[in-house]
């Protein structure tokens, strides 16, 4: 059998697109990038089994004509792991959205602290000590308020906006 060029091209394309998405600041894109990379790796493992053959069932084909079953077993395990982890990552992203109404990677605390080392802030090393005014707008909510504070304030500001948690009980701000 001749080696196929389709698999390497697919693997390369998936890796390229996955890395591109992974470098984005939006967490949903990061998740999509991770899924693409996971699939690229699965196809890579699949291509490790060599040329395609008959289904690896005893009695169905001669041992020389079977395709190698081990990489398929490995891929199945890897798919299950990827599936579970992406579900968890999705939950974390949703939680991040609920907390700060942002689903982007946050500014690094360390960078900001170094940048904030003016004499007035010379000893403001704890993220909690930093003046919220000095922060990037997207990071303020995370530092200023607890989750409930954010939700309450948002509920006051946008009373008509529906909660993004479909099916969950309404947040405290709206019931009181």
């Amino acid at each position: 059998m001749t080696p196929t060029i389709v698999l390497p091209v697919v693997i390369a394309g998936l890796y390229a697109a996955g890395v591109y998405l992974l470098l984005d600041r939006s967490l949903t894109r990061v998740l999509l990038g991770f899924l693409l990379l996971g699939n690229a790796t699965n196809v890579l493992v699949l291509s490790a089994s060599g040329p395609a053959g008959e289904a690896p069932l005893v009695g169905h084909a001669g041992s020389g004509e079977m395709s190698d079953p081990l990489p398929q077993a490995l891929i199945l395990t890897a798919i299950v792991i990827t599936f579970g982890v992406s579900a968890f990552l999705l939950a974390v992203i949703h939680r991040s959205w609920r907390l700060v109404r942002q689903e982007v990677v946050h500014t690094d605390e360390e960078d900001r602290r170094v940048a904030a080392r003016t004499p007035r802030h010379a000893d403001a090393m704890d993220p909690d000590d930093i003046d919220p005014v000095d922060l990037a707008p997207g990071d303020r909510a995370a530092v200023v308020g607890r989750p409930t504070d954010v939700e309450e304030r948002l509920a006051q500001r946008y009373p008509d906006t529906a909660s993004d948690d479909v099916g969950l009980p309404p947040t405290r701000g709206r019931t009181t």
Partner: peptide, 16 residues
């Protein structure tokens, strides 16, 4: 909580 989610996302993506 917000800081844990923030730290957790870095950790999860890097580990993945």
């Amino acid at each position: 909580s917000a800081p844990r989610i923030r730290g957790g996302i870095t950790y999860i993506v890097v580990s993945l």
